[in-house]
Design a binder for these strands. Structure first.
Lengths: 218, 218
DNA sequence: GTAGTGTTTTGAACACGTTCAAAGCCCCGG
DNA sequence: CCGGGGCTTTGAACGTGTTCAAAACACTAC
C-alpha cells in the first residue's frame, strides 16, 4: 500500500531530523535513526540509499521556512537594498536552529556529484525555486537596471546568496553576527552596482558579466 | 631519533599520495596506506590523527607546484589581466592530475572547523603565502588602483581564486575547459574594475568594499 | 651493565555506514 | 482456498576509520 510506504518514509525522515537537531549529523547513527523510527537499519536503507540522502529532509524544510519568512519581511519595501537585506536576514533567521551542524550538511552538499549540490542536475527544480525568489525580490523593487543585466540578475543575486551561505557556514560568532554584518555591508554595494549599471562607463562591464553568465550556462 | 621520525612520516604521506592518485580518496584505506608505507595502522594514526589530515600532503604539493608554474608564466607581462590570467591558468594546470578526486579533498577542507579550511586559524600561514602570490601579481603590473583599495586587493584577488577553485571542483568538462572559460571572462572584468576604481563615481563603491573587508577581519 | 623514562610501534577491538540473502506481507487470478 | 509474484522488512555480516593498552625501542644516568 502506498500510504504505508509514505508513513514509513516519513517516520524515518522525522526521526533523522530530530536526531540531527539533538546530536548533530556525525553524532547520529543510522541505527539510532532506525530505532527511533521503529524500523530496522536495512529498512532505512530501502528508502534512503545513504545517510547523506537523509539531509534532503532538512534542506526542504529550510527552503520552505525561508520563503515563509522572506515574503512578509520584504512586503511593503520597494528599495532593492531593503528587500535584498530582508531576504538574506530571513535566511539567517530560518537557518539559526541548525547552525551547529549545518556545516556538515553543506559540506556534504558541496561534494561534486552529490545530488544535493546546488549545481547538480538533480537540484534543478530546487535551484529554479531559489532563483525565482530573487526574481520576486527584484520585481517588487523600483529599480531600473540595464535591461540586459536585468535578465541575469535573479541568478546573480542567488549566487550572492550562496556566497553568504558559504560565509555563514564558517561563521562562529554568536547569533551569526558576522554574517549579518556581511549582509548589511554587501547589500548596499550590490544595490549601488545595479543602480550604476545604466551608466555609460559601466555598460561594457555589465555586458561582460552578462556574457560570462550566459557562456557558462552553455 | 628525529630523522627516523621524519622518514616514517614521509613514508606514510608518500604512500598516501600514491594511493590517492591510484584509487582516489574514498578508494584508499588507512590499512592500505599503512601497508604500502610498511608500518602498522596504529602507527599511521600516531603521525596523522585522521585520514583527512593526510590530505595536507596533497595540499602542500599543489601550492608548491602552482607557485613554480605561476611565477615564470607571468614574468615579462605587465598587464594586470595577463598576469592574473597566467596565475589562474597555472593553478588549473597544476591541479589537473588530481582532478578526479580533488573534489573530495576540497569538500573535506570546506568543512568548518577543519584545519585544512582556508579560513581556519591553522591555515593562517598557508593563506598568507597564497595572498602573497597575488601581491606579486599586482606588484609586477603597471596598474594604479585607488590607494585604499590597493591595500586590500591581494586578499580580494585571492578570494577570486577561491571562487574559481570552487567552480573547478564542480566542473566536469574535459580539460576543465569551462573553468578556463570562466577565468578568461572573469579576469578582464576584474582588471577593468581595478582600473575604474579611481573614477569619482566609483570611489564610494570602492570604499564600501574596503570597509567590508576590514570589518570582517575584525 | 641496569634501571628508568620518554618515544615509537603494534594489532586486536570497537563503532559505524552499508550490503544482501532471506523472510514476511499483500494482493490477485484461478 | 491456493499459489505465485512483487513490494517491504529484517538482522547478521562486511569493510572501514579510529582507539588503546601493551610491547618494543632509544637514551640517559648511575
Amino acid at each position: 500500500m502506498t500510504t504505508a510506504r509514505r508513513s514509513t518514509r516519513d517516520a524515518i525522515v522525522g526521526a533523522a531530523l530530530e536526531l540531527f537537531r539533538e546530536r548533530g549529523f556525525d553524532g547520529t547513527t543510522m541505527r539510532a535513526v532506525a530505532d527511533r523510527a521503529g524500523v530496522s537499519v536495512g529498512n532505512a536503507y530501502y528508502y534512503f540509499s545513504s545517510k547523506d540522502e537523509l539531509v534532503q529532509g532538512f534542506y526542504d524544510q529550510l527552503v520552505a521556512e525561508h520563503r515563509a519568512l522572506a515574503l512578509p519581511a520584504m512586503a511593503g519595501h520597494t528599495d532593492l537594498g531593503e528587500r535584498l537585506g530582508a531576504t538574506l536576514h530571513a535566511w539567517i533567521t530560518a537557518a539559526e536552529p541548525y547552525r551547529e551542524f549545518a556545516g556538515r550538511f553543506f559540506a556534504v552538499a558541496a561534494q561534486p556529484g552529490n545530488p544535493l549540490s546546488p549545481f547538480s542536475p538533480d537540484a534543478g527544480p530546487a535551484r529554479a525555486a531559489a532563483v525565482e525568489l530573487y526574481q520576486e525580490v527584484l520585481a517588487g523593487s523600483r529599480v531600473d537596471p540595464d535591461p540586459e543585466l536585468a535578465r541575469e540578475l535573479p541568478e546573480l543575486l542567488w549566487l550572492q546568496h550562496l556566497g553568504i551561505v558559504l560565509f555563514w557556514v564558517h561563521d562562529r560568532s554568536p547569533h551569526a553576527a558576522r554574517t549579518r554584518l556581511l549582509v548589511d555591508r554587501t547589500v548596499p554595494i550590490v544595490a549601488r552596482l545595479v543602480r550604476l549599471s545604466r551608466l555609460p562607463v559601466l555598460r561594457p562591464l555589465g555586458r561582460q558579466v552578462v556574457d560570462l553568465v550566459r557562456a557558462l550556462r552553455e
